[in-house]
Computed example of a mutant assay.
Amino acid sequence: MDKSILLIGDKKSFMVKAVISGLESNGFAVNPVGSLPDDIKKAVKGGEVCLLYCDNSVDAASMACIRDIIDDRDIKLFAIGLPEDFSRLFPIIPRAKIEDVFERPFSVDNVANKLAIALMIKEEGESKKRILLVDDDQVSLNAIKSCLAKQYKVYVANSGVNAIAFLARNEVDLILMDYEMPVTSGAQVFEMLRSEPTMAKIPVMFLTSKQDKDTVMKLVALKPEKYLLKTMPPEALREQIESYFHSKLYDSH
């Protein structure tokens, strides 16, 4: 297992150096990031396990930067600090967005155990196919994500614009997209994807609640991988996606 983590905090701090030393003794490869927003933005690409050493060197701007990264990219964040540090942190980064917190004084071995578990889960998740689900309907998002989450790694975007922003920083194996979204429709997002070289080859399946002849003809003309009815039972949706991935695996051989 790759035991690499990013540590966000004042690299000159004695306590940060002590944490790094303790984690390295537990077999971790620790990359100290620094606590300035620019340093954080450059270091955190997505997919990492990050440990935040929250002290006075981490100001509101740095916390807001980390929050925005969490909202936009797939990272697991842990935090070390005093109660007063967490009282500054949680209004900016809600506790629910943080995997775990360690109040000082703390056991480095305990931190190491929690980080190792997170890395193991991350490694297992990376073997799953990644699906981006795009829909403006939160109820639909939640229902389809729940249907697929056990078998696939599912990300969600509630608009076409958010989907494009997510895909600019993250790779996926399939996009499931609502065809009838307001503002920017599924068809418009599809055309945007196909015009962008880095996204042009991402497979897209449309989700639709309509099956009239006019809608079907428009869908077919776009040449997505498939179009699927939102009304289909969950098990039928899973079967369609599983069948697609199996066919791609067969084609690759």
Rank of each mutant, 00 (worst) to 15 (best):
P94A: 01
R95T: 00
A96V: 09
A96G: 01
A96T: 11
K97P: 05
I98L: 02
V101M: 02
F102R: 02
E103W: 00
R104N: 06
F106L: 03
S107R: 09
V108P: 04
D109M: 07
D109K: 11
N113H: 14
K114E: 08
L115C: 06
A116F: 05
A116S: 14
A116H: 10
I117C: 02
I117P: 01
I117K: 10
K122G: 04
G125W: 07
E126R: 13
K129M: 06
R130C: 13
L132N: 08
L132A: 04
L133H: 15
D136E: 12
D136Y: 11
D137L: 08
Q138M: 00
V139E: 12
L141S: 11
A143F: 10
A143T: 14
A143K: 12
I144F: 06
I144T: 10
S146M: 15
C147A: 14
L148T: 06
A149C: 14
K150C: 09
Y152F: 15
V154M: 08
V156F: 00
A157T: 00
N158C: 11
N158P: 00
S159K: 05
V161F: 15
N162G: 14
N162Y: 07
A163D: 10
I164A: 03
A165W: 02
F166M: 14
A168F: 00
N170G: 01
N170P: 00
E171C: 05
E171I: 03
V172A: 03
V172C: 01
I175C: 08
I175Q: 05
I175Y: 09
L176Y: 07
M177Y: 00
D178I: 13
D178G: 10
M181F: 04
M181H: 05
V183D: 13
V183C: 10
T184Y: 03
T184R: 06
T184G: 01
S185D: 13
A187R: 11
Q188I: 07
V189T: 12
E191R: 09
R194T: 03
R194I: 04
R194K: 12
S195R: 14
S195H: 12
E196C: 09
P197R: 10
P197V: 11
T198K: 15
T198Q: 08
A200N: 05
A200T: 12
I202Y: 00
V204D: 01
L207S: 10
T208V: 08
S209H: 09
K210L: 12
K210Q: 10
Q211R: 13
D214A: 13
T215D: 06
V216C: 02
V216K: 02
M217R: 02
M217K: 07
K218F: 05
L219R: 01
L219E: 01
L219K: 03
V220Q: 03
A221T: 04
L222E: 06
P224M: 01
K226W: 08
L229H: 03
T231V: 08
